[in-house]
Design a protein around this nucleic acid. Sequence first.
DNA 1: ACCGCCGGGTGCC
DNA 2: ACCGCCGGGTGCC
Length: 879
Amino acid sequence: MIVSSSMHRQTPFPFTEELSDEEDDTNKEDDNPEELYLVGYVQVQVVGLQYYNGTVTDNEMVQLIREPHNPYDSNAIRVDNIRGERVGHIERYKACNLAPLVDQELVVIEGVVCSNSFRNRYRMPCNVYIFSQLPTMDFVEQLIAASGFQLITPMEDGFVLQQQEAMSAPEKDMSREERKRKIDNMFETLIQSSSKRQSMEPSSLITCKLMQHQKEALAWMVERENGSGLPPFWEAEIEKGSKEIIYKNTITNYSSKDRPDALRGGILADDMGLGKTLQLLALIATNKPGAVLSPVVDIVHSPVQKPDEDAKPSKKRKKLEEKENRSKKGTSKPADKSLSIADPPPCPPKLGGPRATLVVCPLTVLSNWVEQLSEHTRQGSLDVHLYHGADRAKDAKTLATKDIVFTTYGIIAKERNLPNSLLKKVHWLRVILDEAHLVKSPSAQQTRAAVSLKADRRWAVTGTPIQNSSKDLFSLMMFLKLQPLNERSFWTRTIQRPLLNGERSGFSRLQGLMSAIALRRTKETQVDGHRLVELPPKVVTVYPVELSSEHRRVYDQMELKGKNLVGNYLEAGTILQNYANVLSIILRLRQICDHAALCPEHADLLAAASSSQGPSLASPELLQKLLAQTGEEFDCPICLSPPDSAVITRCAHVFCQRCIQKTLMCDKKSCPLCRFPLTDSDVFSAPLDEAENESDTDSNVKSSAKIDALINLLQETRERDPSIKSVVFSQFAKMLTLVQQPLKKAGFKYVRIDGSMSVTKREEALQAFKSTKSKAPTVFLLTLKAAGTGLNLTSASHVYMLDPWWNPAVDEQAMDRVHRLGQTREVHIYRLIVTDSIEERILDLQERKRQFAQVAFGKSQEEQQRLMRVEEVQLLMRL
DNA sequence: ACCGCCGGGTGCC
DNA sequence: ACCGCCGGGTGCC
């Protein structure tokens, strides 16, 4: 992998492409906006208006753009309006004082032009807000003052920051956690708050009956696609003098006579298990080119009324009222005005226009789509193509004539740099990003690829919006092309920074935004006193396991060794440098809890590590083993996403191959985490899964306490009710292998999915497990990694978690494969935990994480990682 | 007349 | 463009 990719870098075209990408990415301001504080503002003139066409009105935000290559003045700062049209320049005698500060990254500047009355044809005044990092604030203040500016600081009387309340720096740190919690809660409460909802029957191509909340989602999505309402934060006004309609953006104060395009699409953020995929299929099948839409039905939300008896009369009443209102409007108002400001007519998809919907999802979710498609749509009524693997379509026309084209994030990212990408050539009717929370970093290939797709309607679909930091949300805005919030600087200044600074405006804007374009219902959402979906209860039992005396001895020995070693690192403060050793110790301990055979003798490593000072270097082989076992447990610290083809460095830090290579190519040649000097040959990729096949048939290996416990539990259950099916999760593929023999011996039929299996093989296993025939397998073996999202395992009702993982979300996601929509039985979850072991501490850690996750927002991933790195190691090792 | 003053031409960076 | 600045025209009261 590494070799081929470094060769690839030598070909000229991709090389320059990658470099230019890199330049875009290194935007320090946007990476750390929360560290910037307002120093104050200065007043400057924007000059040269007569040379440009860009217009701005009262108190409108503008972009200030450094022009270091301006032939007339290397200090030039250009002023653009929100649309990117040029307005003018900052007068040079002020610009020459600001530009150096900006260039040295001492400050970030933002502009708001002043009210109309102070301007003429040639110049206009503009407030330049100056932000700096906390340590340099005083220095910046002095510099600004020394340059002859009159700096107006937040402390001063009469200071108004862009019509919001500003916060002084000390206050900002006051209760960031509280604020974060508030933001999280917002997602739970804001959406679907309106009392009136509408619902729509799906096209007859959908063969199953939609639940009420799904019909409502359909109506909402169709309205979002076809309706021509103004995008969020835009208002229409009638200008007093000319009586022309002016469209005004309320957060930037930009206004224009051109009506902004409607935002066709949005964010579908329903909880897992409410049937998002079905809702989307209904949308695709219903809002087709040339389709006749069934009328939308209004539902009056009335908690007191019984839904069945009173729904119809109230519906009629509502309609009558509406008719009356309409006729009243028509007669009593001066008709022309109210009509002229009304929205244009809806725009359903046209026959002969774009036809195909592109669904982008992770590979693991693809099977869910295919499954739902075959279960819930009329056979063959939708023309579908899987754009994945070797047999994918070869020309754009084929793709364009399909109803649905499925592809993966991997493919769109790969094709992004392909000049002849079919995906880029097709004009899509709509693009759906499923599991859109995977689109995190605005600069990630996947995000950029998604943005560049040509599509009339755009949907981001995610079941976990809470995980989204406001930065992730920005990626979604980019994808949705919501102007001007898809522009980094505007997103940062109007939402992200106010939000992080605790200004009410940020919160209310985000709320306004989400309620306008997002739909979210949770399993707990109640409508008319009922939950949307009643799921059978879930019972979680921690099942203690005692190690055999032999394994206990091995464990205690290892723990003692590890404790000493980690204790030494702690004292010396060298945990990060010795991360490989720490991880491997924790790994060993966890493995011994499952089965001592998982943990091969690596005394060499411990010996080497404990004897050497400084950073100890493990052998490439060991690193690769480590990577294979832990590689995807952490997010790549560069892009903050799960690593895309993970690699491990000689200093034992795991990155995306792409990310670390870019770093090594452009920056200093050292590890971004520990500064250990690195070259290309210090980066290793995982060996091809040897561990998987290793001791498949090795029946000599003894059982372990945990395996015995599992078999006992499974047997008990089978005796009680042989129809009950079970899912067994482990982190370790090899553990699952070790479980296979005892399972067979005990007479269980099982299937297994692991990372190395092809899509079709996975599908086969899934189908076999689903069968209710007596010969069908009753146990499903899965690694947590392979479980992914989207996998539907509702045919099982018992879950065995063989080993705990410290991110509770991962565990819970795995459980939700079983406890989800479609589950009819009570779900029992057994967590097999070795008493008095690291596993108990991992459970404690999970609890802490769960509480931490309540307030985790923004940099949570980095923070969580950092926490894991030191404090949690202490906790795990009881130090 | 190597100044002051007047008034037209002119104008971002 | 109701300013500043430049540079040519001009020159007692």
